[in-house]
């Protein structure tokens, strides 16, 4: 029978680590997936990034010092993996190409079930630079406080506010041009 709960002690103990980690995967996968999916947008990509996130967490479990919440640590790994994925996807290509690719794929994605406005918003988000995209998602959809975001992304609150403001302006402009 699989374990349904886990503690940090169990995760640190080699005897109980595997089972406790399994319980953690079962418990936190939906919220990590949701976070990753908002950034990478497509299910197959989110599945890859999610697996890499858990793999990194498993491989680096001993380096978790406990100076933040375990969920915060996992969140940070997920964000870094998402960012790495985006950077691998389009290392140096133009925004026009990214936008076209996102629009083409999202509309035909069987796992995207958004209305016209939601589709337009996702298209607009896809045009944002990678880090701006992450900041926008955390702030707009998850309503994360800048203070928390600052610790998570190791970036000053001022820079995050500026980044979010720029992202909003770009999205407003995108909607304006699409109208």
């Amino acid at each position: 029978m699989s374990r349904s709960s886990y503690t940090l002690e169990q995760l640190r103990n080699p005897e109980t680590r595997y089972e406790a980690f399994g319980a953690m995967v079962r418990s936190l996968t939906p919220q990590l997936y949701s976070q990753i999916r908002r950034i990478v947008q497509y299910h197959d990509d989110a599945d890859d990034v999610l697996q890499n996130t858990w793999l990194k967490a498993w491989q680096n479990l001993d380096s978790f010092r406990g100076d933040c919440l375990l969920t915060t640590w996992l969140y940070r790994i997920a964000l870094n993996e998402s960012l790495s994925f985006l950077q691998r996807q389009h290392p140096a290509d133009s925004l026009d190409n990214e936008e076209g690719e996102a629009a083409r794929t999202l509309e035909s994605d069987p796992y995207f079930d958004g209305d016209e406005i939601e589709l337009l918003l996702q298209k607009a988000i896809a045009t944002l630079p990678d880090k701006q995209r992450i900041v926008f998602n955390l702030r707009y959809f998850e309503e994360m406080k800048y203070e928390h975001m600052s610790r998570l992304l190791d970036t000053s609150e001022g820079a995050l506010k500026a980044s979010y403001h720029l992202a909003v302006k770009k999205i407003e402009q995108f909607f304006h041009e699409a109208d």
Partner: peptide
Amino acid sequence: TRTFNPSQPVPTHDPFKVP
């Protein structure tokens, strides 16, 4: 008219589905 207003409440509907 399709506009984006960040001060409006975030839509509760999640367009991202999973298999």
